[in-house]
Simulated scan of single mutants.
Amino acid sequence: MGGPSGGRPGMAGAAAAAALLCALHVHAACQHATVTQELLQAGFHRELLVKVELGEGGEDAGGCTVAARIRLPPGIYVDPYELASLQRHNLTKAVLVPAAVDVEAPEYSATELLVLLYMEPDPWCSRCFRAVLPMHGRYHRPAEDSEEASVVLKSPEVLRCCCDNRLSTECWTPAEVEAPCSSKPDGPCQWYSTMRKPVPEELILQVPVGLRQHSSIVCVLTLLATGLCSSLILAAVCKHGHFSAVTSSE
């Protein structure tokens, strides 16, 4: 009687250890997605290059859609008209939330923008995806001693959509995304969020800003330029315009 009863704690401990090792193995296998960001061009008009590598531990991405959910701070915006033009030429595909964007609003009165950027497969890497998002810096308040304002871009979230539900529930969690899956655009499809390796450093965008001590000079030059242009336009109209008297008949 003592042998079997004494073996039960050992069996329970072995089972617990096996379960822990299995959980650690699954957790390690899920840490496979890597996201990198790169800023292209300079000034107010930039391009954000996003690269995603699912790694060797993930499922095959064939037949699935991979997207990056990017949260743009108020200092950056995406022009919906520019994006629509690029989508007509199959250059970039993305969904904006909200869809209406005030492109004239300055940074201090703008709101955060959510972008779902659809990724394209990399022909040189079976588990790699990439996409380019055009974005623009907003005007900031004049600064005291710096000619640039820093806008921090956080790492995007990796999303996948497989309408045949082939994703592992240990590595993927359901995500609330109000956007169609390109593999099945006419029907409902569940998006999933994957674990990813954290980016060591956040991406920082430098936006040119004016200096506060130059405000008076800018105002004077603006008034002079406006007055000069208005005078030239008025002179051209008086010299080359054709005026005719208009009479009304009773």
Score class of each variant (00 low, 15 high):
Glu82Trp: 10
Pro198Ser: 05
Ala236Val: 06
Arg69Thr: 06
Pro198Met: 03
Ser150Tyr: 00
Gly2Gln: 14
Ala42Phe: 10
Ala105Trp: 05
Arg88Ala: 13
Glu157Ile: 07
Glu38Pro: 00
Ser231Ala: 15
Cys181Leu: 03
Ala149Pro: 07
Val220Arg: 12
Leu133Ala: 05
Val78Ile: 07
Cys22Gly: 10
Leu232Pro: 04
Leu211Tyr: 06
His32Cys: 11
Leu54Thr: 04
Cys161Ala: 09
Cys229Thr: 11
Val95Gln: 04
Ile76Ser: 01
Pro208Val: 07
Pro142Asn: 03
His25Ala: 14
Ala68Leu: 02
Cys64Arg: 12
Glu144Ala: 13
Ala179Trp: 01
Ala225Gly: 08
Ala17Thr: 01
Cys125Pro: 00
Val246Thr: 12
Ala42Tyr: 09
Gly75Glu: 08
Asn165Glu: 13
Pro142Gly: 03
Gly62Tyr: 04
Glu56Gln: 13
Thr36Lys: 11
Ser216Gln: 13
Ala245Phe: 14
Cys64Phe: 03
Asp186Glu: 15
Pro98Lys: 05
Pro180Val: 02
Gly7Met: 14
Val78Thr: 02
Ala225His: 10
Leu114Gln: 12
Ala110Gly: 03
Glu202His: 12
His45Tyr: 11
Val35Pro: 01
Cys238Gly: 06
Leu153Tyr: 03
Phe44Pro: 00
Ile70Thr: 07
Leu232Ser: 11
Arg160Asn: 02
Val237Ser: 11
Gly75Ile: 02
Glu170Val: 06
Cys219Val: 12
Ser85Gln: 15
His136Pro: 04
Arg160Thr: 10
Tyr77Met: 04
Ala61Ile: 02
Pro174Cys: 00
Gly187Tyr: 10
Leu232Tyr: 10
Ala245Asn: 14
Ser168Pro: 01
Phe129Ile: 07
Leu153Gln: 05
Asp79Val: 01
Ala84Ile: 01
Ala131Gln: 04
Ser155Arg: 08
Cys238Phe: 14
Ile233Gly: 09
Gly137Ser: 09
Val177Pro: 03
Met1Phe: 13
Leu116Tyr: 09
Trp124Asp: 15
Gly75Tyr: 06
Ala12Lys: 11
Ala28Ser: 10
Leu167Ile: 00
Ala175Asn: 00
Ala28Met: 09
His136Cys: 08
Ser230Met: 13
Trp172Thr: 05
Lys197Asp: 05
Arg160Gln: 11
Gly43Ala: 08
Ser182Gln: 15
Tyr139Lys: 15
Leu228Val: 13
Pro74Asn: 00
Cys161Lys: 08
Glu147Tyr: 00
Cys238Ile: 10
Ser182Leu: 15
Pro9His: 10
Leu54Pro: 01
Gly43Cys: 06
Glu202Phe: 09
Cys163Val: 07
Met1Ser: 14
Ile233Val: 15
Ser5Ala: 13
Arg138Phe: 03
Arg71Tyr: 00
Val220Ala: 12
Glu56Ser: 14
Tyr139Thr: 15
Arg127Ser: 14
